[in-house]
Amino acid sequence: MKIIKKIAGINSNLSSKSFTVFYRNYMVWLKYYKPGVIGDILEPLLYLAALGFGVGKFIHSINGISYVKYIVPGIIASSSMYAAAFESTFGAYTRMVTNGIYEAILLTPVGIEDIVAGEILWGTAKAFMSGAAVLIIGTAFGWIISPFVFFIPVIIVLNGILFSSLSLLITSFSPSYDFFSYYFTIAVSTMFLFSGVFYPVSSLPYLVKYFVYIMPLYYTVSIMRMLDEGRINPLTLSAYLSVIILFALIFFYASVFFIRKRVIK
């Protein structure tokens, strides 16, 4: 009951002011975007090229699909995860703790809910830039030919919301920048390596396979692969979408709660 009341309170306080928080981050990004864009876009492309062409020489196909085509959906999902995670940890921590931006914003009619929502929107935008770059390259090279390709951007957005929310939640606890090493090593890298980006999860040992099902990235990689291969199972699709939305909502409300606790004494 208490949780429902808190969620209702957060919902009623949410306003369009979150877009001004987004816009503030965008204004700052415009000043320094060049090195950031190169990192966000080039890195996933390097993975795609190195693994797709390098490892692809030895693994000709998985499930009847060439290796480079097989990893494209996973690279889209993982690159957008990384972009959202970096922005909503290091970027958000700098704004919240180092530069006191949250406190400055709170002196105005913008509330914590708006700040969190604005930060998640911004993290999602960064995720979209990164994921969309791989999608465009993948489509241009003919690695994605499914008619469902147009739905992939929607999943990139959902993935961005999911990982921005999760990362912001981690940031709300973080005592320093170093703390993010735990998150990136234990959570983000583990998801990157085990969520089916590079190989089918079914090939993993029995116990590990079940461990993968608690990883949010597994669901976005799976949906993107379904869309990419054009083999859509409506039941699985809706179940996986529900899991992603549920994860995102839990992380969003938890972020609002814990960031409020951190900023307002």
Binding site: T20, R24, M27, K31, N99, G100, I101, E103, A104, P109
Partner: peptide
Amino acid sequence: NLDEDLSVYENLLIYSMYFG
């Protein structure tokens, strides 16, 4: 807690936007 990344004018502009 001024916005270090922005100019003087941008600080005022963005702050005014928080007020709608």
